[in-house]
């Protein structure tokens, strides 16, 4: 390992010469250190490209649409004689309330995401449990197999289902060849297809945190429970489930939150009547070019998701805290 040493010496050289020294001495004299720099760079980046954009979305959601580029009117405008006019309009939000399309799609998104999350949990928990209880040599391989689809294109994996579900797709062809059905079953562009797509795409996100939690679980706890007369099924619900709760919460949030705002799956697999809020926002923005309404849709979606996001961050913090 001679490379790190080279790097270190290079660093020392840079430090000993010219501008770096002046800059660092100047900063240190004002009480700044390398630590401040390390923190400041990602901090500023996130403040500029993650926090600030939300404020802009908030701002645009209360401004009025206009046919220009950008297609919204400024909030603050200079009227002659230095009078400043502030125009805040809640019309966009009122519009969301009035038109049943919007609140129906919010409700539909939440319901779809919740049902998909439950299905993911029901499939994912036994999988994660099975992997965690496999022989040690197998465990990494199985885990790799769960991760592998995640590393391949999400879009292409959703696309693969089109070929399976469509009217002359694999399933219908198979069933017709076997003589079970005469007419193809319409599966593509239905809610059924959408659920399949969401569960299929987000299953790895459920399995991984569950695996981490189950793998940490001390096997002797279950043996102790059995020794004290607890039957396996009861032991599962009274010991395994409570102790893997952080994994369950993290997994559910990792599926639920992005699923609420999902666009690609409803667009490719869902029918025209499957109203998902992500798709509504997309169409509002790209097809209607109504940026203020799209912004209002986003802000309301964010409000819906604030609580799940906070739950997720807490469970994440606990998991990282447990290492210490």
């Amino acid at each position: 390992m001679s490379k790190p040493f080279l790097l270190g010496e290079l660093l020392a050289w840079i430090r000993a010469h010219g501008p770096w020294r002046w800059a660092s001495q100047g900063l240190r004299a004002r009480g700044y250190s390398g630590r401040t720099l390390v923190t400041a760079v990602p901090y500023l980046w996130l403040a500029l490209f993650f926090l600030l954009p939300f404020l802009i979305v908030l701002k645009i959601s209360v401004s009025e649409m206009q046919l220009a580029m950008p297609p919204y009117q400024p909030l603050v405008s200079w009227i002659s004689d230095g009078v400043i006019a502030l125009r805040i309009s809640f019309e966009n939000y009122l519009f969301l309330l009035e038109d049943s399309l919007y609140w129906k799609s919010y409700l539909n998104s939440i319901r779809t995401a919740a049902i998909s999350t439950v299905i993911c949990l029901l499939i994912g928990y036994p999988m994660a449990y099975g992997i965690a209880r496999s022989p040690a040599a197998w465990r990494n391989l199985l885990l790799l197999l769960v991760m592998l689809p995640f590393w391949t294109s999400f879009l292409l994996r959703v696309y693969a289902w089109i070929g399976i579900l469509k009217n002359n797709g694999v399933i219908n062809n198979l069933l017709m060849a076997l003589g079970i059905i005469d007419e193809p079953i319409v599966m593509l562009q239905t809610n059924f297809a959408m659920y399949i797509g969401i569960v299929y795409s987000y299953l790895p996100f459920m399995v991984l945190p569950l695996y981490t939690a189950i793998e940490k679980l001390d096997q002797s706890l279950l043996e102790a429970a059995a020794n004290l007369g607890c039957r396996p099924v009861k032991a599962f619900f009274r010991i395994t489930v409570p102790l893997t709760m952080t994994g369950i919460i993290a997994g559910c949030m990792l599926v639920f939150i992005p699923a609420v705002g999902e666009f690609v799956i409803p667009a490719l697999l869902g029918g025209p009547d499957s109203l998902m809020i992500g798709r509504v926002l997309w169409e509002e923005f790209f097809n209607n070019r109504d940026w203020p309404v799209a912004s209002a849709v986003a802000i309301v979606m964010l409000f819906v998701l604030v609580i799940p996001i906070m739950i997720y961050q807490r469970s994440q913090g606990q998991q990282l805290g447990a290492h210490r």
């Binding site: 979305v57 939150i257 705002g261 992500g278 926002l281 997309w282 979606m301 964010l302 998701l305």
Partner: peptide
């Protein structure tokens, strides 16, 4: 950003 819906 880990969980933020991409459309937002």
């Amino acid at each position: 950003p880990l969980v933020m819906p991409e459309v937002i």
